[in-house]
Design a protein around this nucleic acid. Structure first.
Length: 725
DNA sequence: TCCATTGACGTTTTT
DNA sequence: CGTCAATGGA
């Protein structure tokens, strides 16, 4: 068979990976080195050359977008249907397994997926019911604890150090929460993975079946896998499966949410005969950008090592702008973008990348003022909107009235005289008898435990749900959706809101009905035994949809560095390049490789740029209400000067502060600061440290000093007794 | 039950 | 400074 069309468009390293004959393959794919291309060609190669049945291949990604792209491009390349191929996200695949084997997994058939908002609300509820102080035991932290444990594959009984009072409290909450979920048939995101893993652990026959069927496993973004995902892959592979993973340890930026870069190294140890292929030729950026990025990332100690190169030109130098303050920074970026547009380039060629979401505000303001169209990534997704989740909660109750999360959400929405008092009474009953809220409410009714008015209201709600279920059981999904919105009279609830808000809500509800109308039960969901409604609800949870229906075309792109991963733009601004902001203070303080992860984030940002990269930082930034004197990011210092071109602010003579680069900032006209930023000072107790910033004035002046031994500390200048060195 | 004021807090995000 | 959630008076 002629396979030249599969190989022609690949370079040597890519070809080596795609055509690997046996064993496992680890592809270390640098930024812009054609990672997706390799994955897609590998799929095609397996099918067309090795004649592997598409049914025997599983390809896993992290995001729905990546999964869709892989399926799409594979279809284009192969010119055959990709439907039999199992391509999906870890969560999507775990979900499908659990649907097919709900009995073996110990789940009710109508189990529902809990998104993180649902999860947090449920936890807040539990913590309150326990009579615990929410300020001391925030639901957010409980959520973090539980998900982190689940990501490590741990159940409450597996967690040690129960003698530690804080840990044991969280374990207690974990246990209560899991009981709630089990009673109501609720599965959170982490639980999907953990259950899927346990399913195989406890059902060797089932595992064996899948091992025999799925001989080829492909994993995208391997550096982002967490412990349970890695364990899941290992288990499925067994000793017969062949695993092909693609990743880049230098682009691992999700350690804080459980990703384990170590898995990249572990892979070579845990799997025998791993062939490692490095993709280092970059097809995206200019030489200068790549050289600068290489130099930066070389400062990381723990890496597998890689050096990007390009056959293209070295291109323009990286521009560095020292802004007077954050307004000046925004003004500079927006002015330059305007020039870019004036020169005939497109707005969506440009991207502004920042470390924290809050930074977008000022740029939006200036872009708006200059009438430059822009789009902010992130933010709320369609299926996460309040009104959408409210309407879906009614449908969830039709399927599974024991869904406490859904019931809590809508039992009094719109107001139907079931106030906090009645609800907490039901909760108490449920807790005492180990029932779900729905069961407890029915119980209370039949035993006449409610006061007359409350009883009538609760009975009416129960009847509402049961009538809906009865009436709508044969309706189309779209009609069910519309019916649920109408019968519940949700509109009454939003009508009390401000006009504009109400209108958006109604608009979104109409869109929801449209989405339900247009929904086609996917074949794979049908195979897993789902009906339309179940499938629709699962989709709503697993792929929350586009951020906005907003027009996508020709807008400047604003996003965090994290969300920029995987994207590319001709013109990239990395703004707020200041120590404390980027790298973020929290990452500098916590030890344990956090700084290296920040550096990787910087590397990710730089390698998004195709033609021109612009870095900027502000000398003074207002944060949390007070002015901060900033030091340029250490990452700027790590980029060799030969790749940088400094752009001076307009008229430097008018400025009260001298630029921090190359010489450090000086107190200038202000004599209140006896030290320079970056100066080494000595503290009687903490030893020597570096001055990072000042805050406040007069006797309130505080100074931020980084002590190598103990970390960074804020000191009140008047008391600290610091000596210059 | 509702809006308005107050207060706490202040990385990163997908599923 | 700006946001969000919780509290409390009408």
């Amino acid at each position: 068979m002629d396979v030249s069309h599969l190989l022609d468009e690949l370079n040597e390293a890519q070809r080596e990976a795609v055509t690997a004959r046996d064993g496992h393959v680890l592809v270390l794919a640098g930024a812009g080195s054609g990672k997706t291309r390799v994955l897609v060609h590998r799929l095609a190669w397996l099918i067309q050359v090795d004649h592997v049945s598409p049914l025997g291949i599983l390809a896993v990604t992290f995001t729905n977008k990546a999964a869709g792209e892989m399926r799409e491009r594979t279809g284009q390349l192969l010119q055959v249907s990709t439907r039999p191929l199992w391509i999906g996200t870890f969560h999507g695949i775990a979900h499908r397994l659990l649907r097919m084997h709900w009995k073996e997994a110990g789940l009710p058939e109508q189990f529902q997926i809990l998104d993180s908002e649902d999860q947090q609300r449920l936890l807040r509820r539990i913590i309150r019911d326990e009579g615990m102080d929410e300020a001391h035991w925030p639901a957010r932290q409980a959520q973090w604890f539980i998900n982190a444990r689940k990501d490590e594959g741990e159940r409450p009984q597996h967690i040690e150090h129960l003698d530690h009072p804080v840990t044991s409290t969280w374990v207690h909450i974990y246990r209560l929460y899991q009981d709630y979920c089990n009673r109501g048939g609720l599965v959170d995101f982490a639980e999907l993975l953990l259950r899927a893993h346990e399913l195989w652990l406890e059902q060797p026959d089932l595992l064996d079946h899948y091992r025999k069927r799925l001989r080829h496993l492909l994993v995208d973004e391997f550096q982002d896998t967490n412990s349970i995902q890695y364990a899941w892959i290992r288990m499925l592979a067994g000793s017969t499966g062949r695993v092909f993973v693609v990743g880049d340890d230098d682009q691992s930026i999700y350690g804080w949410r459980g990703a384990k870069v170590e898995n990249v190294q572990l892979f070579g140890r845990d799997f025998p005969d791993v062939m490692t292929v490095r993709l280092e030729q970059n097809y995206r950026s200019t030489g200068n950008i790549l050289d600068a990025a290489n130099a930066l990332i070389a400062h990381n100690q723990s890496r597998m090592g890689k050096n990007l190169w390009t056959a293209g030109e070295s291109g323009k130098l990286i521009q560095l702008y020292t802004a007077f303050n954050e307004q000046d920074e925004a003004r500079f970026v927006v002015d330059q973008l305007q020039q870019w547009l004036d020169s005939g380039r497109r707005a969506d060629d440009g991207a502004i990348l920042y470390r924290t979401t809050a930074q977008s505000r000022l740029f939006e303001e200036y872009l708006l003022r200059e009438n430059i169209p822009y789009r902010v990534y992130g933010g709320q997704r369609f299926f996460e909107r309040t009104e959408v989740k409210d309407a879906l909660a009614y449908l969830r109750l039709l399927l599974n009235p024991n869904d406490d999360a859904a019931l809590e959400r809508v039992i009094n929405k719109p107001a139907r005289a079931i106030g906090e008092k009645t609800v907490s009474f039901i909760r108490l009953q449920a807790r005492e008898s180990g029932l779900t809220l729905w069961q407890a409410a029915n119980e209370c009714l039949s035993q006449g435990k409610f006061a007359t008015r409350a009883g009538t209201a609760v009975a009416a709600f129960i009847r509402l749900i049961e009538d809906m279920r009865e009436r709508m059981k044969d309706w189309t999904l779209g009609n069910q959706m519309q019916g649920a919105i109408d019968d519940s009279n949700l509109a009454a609830h939003y009508e009390k809101e401000p006009r504009e808000r109400m209108e958006t809500r109604f608009e979104n509800l109409r869109e929801l009905v449209n989405a339900a109308d247009a929904f086609i039960l996917p074949q794979e969901d049908a195979e897993a035994g789902l009906d339309e409604l179940q499938s629709f609800l699962s989709h709503a949870a697993l792929e929350a949809g586009e951020t906005q229906g907003e027009s996508w075309d020709d807008c400047v792109q604003l996003m965090t560095l994290h969300s920029a991963k995987g994207l590319e733009f001709p013109l990239v601004y990395m703004v707020g390049m200041e120590d404390g902001l980027f790298p973020h203070q929290r990452s500098v303080e916590d030890a344990a490789g956090r700084l290296e992860e920040e550096r990787r984030l910087c590397y990710v940002g730089m390698t998004r740029a195709r033609e021109q990269l612009v870095l900027s930082y502000a000398e003074i930034r207002r944060m949390h209400g007070s002015e901060n004197f900033c030091r340029p990011s250490r990452f700027i210092d790590e980029i060799p000067a030969e790749y940088l071109e400094e752009i001076r602010p307009r008229t430097s003579s008018r400025q009260p502060w001298v630029s921090a680069r190359p010489s450090p900032v000086r107190g200038g006209a202000n004599t209140e600061w006896p030290f320079r930023l970056g100066q080494v000072v000595a503290h009687p107790k903490f030893g020597e440290g570096t001055v990072m910033s000042f805050e406040g004035s007069g006797e309130h002046t505080r100074v931020h000093v980084n002590f190598p031994a103990i970390g960074a500390k804020w000191l009140v200048l008047a008391y600290a007794n610091l000596q210059a060195r």
